[in-house]
Measured scan of single mutants.
Amino acid sequence: LVRYRTISKIPQITLNFVDLKGDPFLASPTSDREIIAPKIKERTHNVTEKVTQVLSLGADVLPEYKLQAPRIHRWTILHYSPFKAVWDWLILLLVIYTAVFTPYSAAFLLKETEEGPPATECGYACQPLAVVDLIVDIMFIVDILINFRTTYVNANEEVVSHPGRIAVHYFKGWFLIDMVAAIPFDLLIFGSGSEELIGLLKTARLLRLVRVARKLDRYSEYGAAVLFLLMCTFALIAHWLACIWYAIGNMEQPHMDSRIGWLHNLGDQIGKPYNSSGLGGPSIKDKYVTALYFTFSSLTSVGFGNVSPNTNSEKIFSICVMLIGSLMYASIFGNVSAIIQRLYSGTARYHTQMLRVREFIRFHQIPNPLRQRLEEYFQHAWSYTNGIDMNAVLKGFPECLQADICLHLNRSLLQHCKPFRGATKGCLRALAMKFKTTHAPPGDTLVHAGDLLTALYFISRGSIEILRGDVVVAILGKNDIFGEPLNLYARPGKSNGDVRALTYCDLHKIHR
């Protein structure tokens, strides 16, 4: 019993810090008490220290592992850092350059016999395009090294910054494609005289377009951006097909006994025919423009016929181009109408809503002055909100995010209106959640004399007048207030005048 009563005193000691020596009952000389009392004092002292730490809000209350900052290894790049964003855009520009100039170089340097010394005699450094290609190869190699040090988000939505895990993730992902696209074939085969082989191998750079397509997928929600990307894709495919079309004609031209190829026909049409040795002929500019003209006309199913396939190889390629053109029509131009419709969806919704308003007016036989006010209010409210119901949009977000959005939407009023000066951010967040926005066209009466005042109004834009009878008592403008002081009276009061809008007004109100 003594032991039980001794232990039962522990909660009292913990909360009230009572010393055991003052209790005459606990001072009985028993061996059990002498053993338990020192333990009680020690526990009391420890609990006292913990309570003191909690009340003082000291940093040592938290466990040590929670006080440590997340460790980022040296030379690790955050995937959302500004440097990584700028670097990704730079790589994107280099990939676009590669997609345009690599097929052009591979096709127009394929057994090209233009006048001038061969590239091997001039030297590697004197070729501007080769120098640019070398810079692109170096940048792609540097990009691989950067990807080995860039964080990523795993399946659990955690940012991984450990170098080993980053390397394994990159090896399992895009490393092989990036490595093949970054191989400097110019340096590996330079001086061997195989410019045709170098041009063909350099087309491996186009593998990076797969990554670019995935990154550009984030802009699919913007109709104008999608339309622009589709047109660029169409032009890029036409450019690639033009390079292939020229390569076919250029390879067949020296081996044909009869002059029936499209390059021969082009030379005869523009007065620059090929001679018996295969030299001469149109310039590279004429060849490229004509090839691009043929691919565009074939892809769009126009086909004027002034550039036509004559050999079997050219006919087979033309059939493939027609098939590609039909697929592009289905996948690209078939979506253009939907994209344009999405661009004008706001206008369509406006006309639909206006039609419903006019049908309501016609069905209920609203008189002319009231009908005009109804239409003007709808037009003004639509121009202010673009038909978007803010309350319906915010309803799907958590309250903390709703408060931040409301604070942002009402920031101008909260910053410049005098009653809100000096208020804490928590108070402003709470008030912003209570605001209701209303609009009024010129001549609209917001409050009639004798109406119950259940709200306090803040003028965000425009001006109003307060009338008693036919006498203008006051004219209020931006950041002015009218209405009933909230919670100042037990019952809502009545208006002693009319409140009429002089201009288009936007008002925020808080109800009782």
Rank of each mutant, 00 (worst) to 15 (best):
Q68L: 12
T76P: 01
H79T: 01
Y80T: 07
F83V: 08
D88P: 01
I91S: 01
I91A: 01
I91W: 01
L92G: 01
L94F: 04
Y97A: 01
Y97M: 01
T98K: 03
F101N: 03
Y104H: 01
K111F: 01
E112F: 05
A119T: 04
Q127K: 01
A130M: 05
L134D: 03
V136A: 12
I141N: 01
V142L: 10
V142Q: 03
D143A: 01
I144A: 01
T150S: 10
E158K: 13
V159S: 01
H162N: 04
P163E: 01
V168R: 14
G173W: 03
D178W: 01
D178C: 01
D178L: 01
M179L: 13
P184E: 01
L187H: 15
L187K: 15
L187V: 13
F190R: 14
G191L: 03
G199L: 04
K202Y: 01
A204Y: 11
R208F: 01
V210L: 04
V212W: 13
A213H: 04
R218E: 05
S220Y: 10
Y222D: 08
G223M: 03
A225W: 15
L227W: 01
F234T: 01
L236I: 05
A238V: 03
A242K: 01
G249V: 01
M251P: 01
P254M: 14
P254D: 15
R259H: 14
I260Y: 07
H264D: 02
G271Q: 03
K272V: 01
Y274S: 01
S277P: 01
P282R: 01
I284D: 03
D286H: 01
T290G: 01
L292N: 01
G303S: 01
N306A: 03
V307S: 01
S308Q: 01
N310I: 01
N310H: 01
T311P: 01
T311M: 01
E314W: 01
V321I: 15
L323Q: 01
S326M: 14
I332A: 03
I339N: 04
Q341Y: 04
R342F: 05
Y344Q: 07
A348G: 07
Y350D: 01
H351A: 05
Q353C: 03
V357W: 01
V357S: 03
N368T: 10
R373P: 01
F378E: 07
Q379T: 07
S383L: 08
Y384F: 06
T385H: 15
I388D: 13
M390H: 04
N391Y: 15
K395N: 05
A403P: 02
Q415H: 08
H416L: 03
C417E: 09
F420G: 02
A423W: 01
T424M: 03
K425Y: 09
L428T: 12
R429Y: 03
F435A: 03
K436P: 02
K436F: 07
A440Y: 05
A440L: 08
V447F: 04
